[in-house]
Amino acid sequence: MASVGFMVCISLERYLMITQPLWFRFRRNIKNSVVVCVVVWILPLLYILLLYFRVHHQILETISAIYFILPFPLFIFFLVGTSKALSAARSVPADEKRRIVAILVVVLLIYTLLFLPGIIWFLVKDARNNLILILTSLTLVNISPLADLMLYIFIRKGVVDKLLASLSCCKMSTNQPMISMSNDTSVSHTQNI
């Protein structure tokens, strides 16, 4: 639950940073970040308290389904809104645009691939007896920390660019002339040509 909460926070931050840059710059401070982190950690603890006090199973399933299904439209909204704002932005470099959109796409993919089977399990009554869906959703939720690590790697500057460069089908030709290190050699090289 905390993982989903922090993914929403990352997506919201990227969305506000692009669509409301002035508001984001003046409202962003460490106090707000600490409050958001505490709230994200308190929500799962409240759920554990409900488990401890043995609240009816149907109520817990409903709370879980709502908690896990609400971020899905938010992720899509943040991705579409950020993409639209970035396409109109002229001051943001192209590599930074790719990096921001890649982060939001990775968040949406992680959420969809890891948490959607569990959401289906919560919401569809016929799926509760499907052993394959149960095992799949539990396995995917348990590898969520690994996905969080991947998300952290994608947030770092330069990683997305290196990945896109390695996946690019455009390679530099080996026949292109090399740029020399010193001016003396480049002058003598041009004189020889």
Rank of each mutant, 00 (worst) to 15 (best):
N192R: 14
K125V: 13
I100H: 02
E61S: 13
D126R: 11
I153D: 03
A127H: 06
S83V: 07
L133R: 03
K171E: 15
L12F: 10
P73I: 04
T190D: 13
V8C: 12
L60E: 01
C37S: 14
E13Q: 11
L60M: 13
M172C: 06
I120K: 07
P93Y: 04
I48T: 08
V36K: 02
Y111N: 03
L104E: 14
S186I: 06
L60Y: 00
M178W: 05
S173N: 14
R98L: 13
L70E: 03
A89N: 13
Q58Y: 07
S33W: 11
I42W: 03
V80W: 04
V34P: 00
T139G: 11
S186Q: 15
V36Y: 00
K97W: 05
N142P: 01
I63L: 15
S180G: 08
L123H: 03
K125I: 11
V80G: 00
V107R: 01
I30H: 10
V8W: 05
L151I: 12
W121C: 05
W121Y: 15
I119D: 04
N142W: 07
P93N: 14
N29E: 06
L133E: 09
I10Y: 05
I119N: 09
K31V: 13
L50W: 00
S87N: 13
V4C: 02
T19W: 02
A85Q: 01
L149Q: 07
F115L: 14
F75S: 00
Y152N: 10
L146C: 07
S11Q: 04
A85R: 00
M7S: 06
L86N: 02
N29Q: 09
C169H: 08
S188N: 12
V8S: 12
V187D: 14
I66E: 03
S180L: 15
R54Y: 09
R27A: 13
I120T: 12
V92T: 15
D161G: 08
A127C: 09
L86E: 00
Y15C: 08
L74Y: 04
L109K: 06
K171V: 14
W121E: 09
L135T: 04
N32P: 02
K171P: 04
Q58A: 15
I18H: 01
F77L: 12
T174E: 15
S166G: 13
S166H: 12
I18V: 15
A65G: 15
Y52S: 11
T136N: 08
L116D: 03
F154D: 03
L86R: 02
F68C: 02
A147R: 01
A165P: 03
F24L: 03
E96Q: 13
D95N: 13
N192V: 09
S91T: 11
L74R: 02
A65C: 09
L86T: 09
M7N: 07
A102R: 09
V55W: 10
I48L: 14
M1K: 02
E61D: 12
T62E: 04
P177Y: 09
P44C: 08
I18F: 01
A89V: 04
D161F: 02
M1G: 00
A2V: 05
T19H: 06
V160Q: 00
L12C: 06
